[in-house]
Design a binder for these strands. Structure first.
Lengths: 193, 193
DNA sequence: GCTCGAACAGACAGGTCTGTCTAGTGTTGG
DNA sequence: CCAACACTAGACAGACCTGTCTGTTCGAGC
């Protein structure tokens, strides 16, 4: 039988629409009505599926988290050493930053004006813990004296590049600066390559 | 005659209220009505003075820019060498990041979901150009081979720390990591102190 | 055939948003 | 005294917001 090309479920269409609109324009700016119109879904379906806009935002960020995690994890397989893997994170993510559709880190943007209990904050916590853990694991494998401290510094560089690319709009130069910064960190922490 | 303690003008009261509310809760979340109520000013006065909410946001960010510029410039006078001044920027700003009222960089937050022509973007451009110029001048005075490139890297660290303190809520550790990152950059670019 | 659940369209409630407008008040300088 | 001016209070327009509700359609399993 031929491949089923069934219409995606309401949940999937909602997430796809939310991903596109929330990322491009912002979670505060885009209203529920625009999401359901773009998804071709009834409003009741959204509220049956997610319960609230806050939960839809959380699910949108969780999807971003999973996608980034997969992209980075898959991409890192091609890098042989822990040290190169760390720089690889900057290269893999940097490739996305070059796109004209890049609008900055979705977690930084979505949490910028979040109120205390918002779902976006929980999603950002989980994402940031993953990034930090990835850097710390790689730093440990690379033989860093203090892997946690190195991971914190790498995350500062990682966040800083995302902000800089969004606001200064010179991706090539900003990415080069970020990669050089990370390389310098590794030289200092592990000895020159 | 005794010092005049005249009531501040409507403009000043509006800016003070905007500064407090916009920074604490966010420029999208806080509406005009709350600003004028907090300022004790009529709505017509706001629109006579600023013309639009966008312009009020721009003026709020301009005030933040001036305040930071003054605080940093004044503070740097106490640091003897260009190299120490660069680290001094992190210390001076870092002191603010420790406050429980710290909500992250106001420019990063206000521009997070700004639409293309927004005043917040213009204000952020001006602010970021100043930061970059300050770092570049100091790097030049310190004898860096490529002051502009060093300034870009310092700005990545500067932005990264602001994001990390806001989202990871461990100011002391994050600031230490940021300062160490900056010191490492200087060691690499200028030779060890 | 029939039932039942999932999704549909869309009205509605109740509130908030920005921005405009009218009308009144108080102060200040000529 | 009075004209100019800055400000105040608050109604209003028109749009948009989240979230709820009613009723309909459609397809799949029994």
């Amino acid at each position: 039988m031929p491949a089923q090309t069934a219409r995606p479920s309401a949940r999937e269409r909602l997430l796809a629409a939310a991903d596109e609109l929330f990322y491009r324009e912002g979670v505060h700016v885009v209203g529920i009505d625009r999401v359901i119109e773009h998804a071709g879904v009834a409003k009741a379906s959204l509220y049956n599926t997610f319960g609230s806009k806050d939960e839809l935002i959380r699910a949108y960020l969780e999807g971003r988290h999973k996608a980034i995690e997969k992209r980075v994890t898959d991409g890192l397989a091609a890098y042989p050493t822990p040290r190169e893997k760390i720089l690889g994170v900057f290269d893999i993510q940097g490739a996305r930053f070059q796109s004209p559709e890049y609008r900055g880190c979705p977690f930084i943007s979505a949490t910028a004006e979040a109120e205390p209990g918002a779902g976006s904050l929980a999603a950002a916590d989980a994402y940031r813990a993953w990034v930090r853990g990835l850097f710390a694991d790689l730093a440990r494998q690379a033989g860093a004296a203090d892997p946690e401290a190195l991971a914190q510094q790498l995350q500062i560089a990682y966040d800083g590049v995302a902000v800089k690319v969004r606001l200064d709009r010179d991706p090539a130069a900003d990415l080069a600066a970020g990669r050089a910064l990370a390389a310098m960190l590794l030289d200092a922490a592990l000895g020159p390559a």
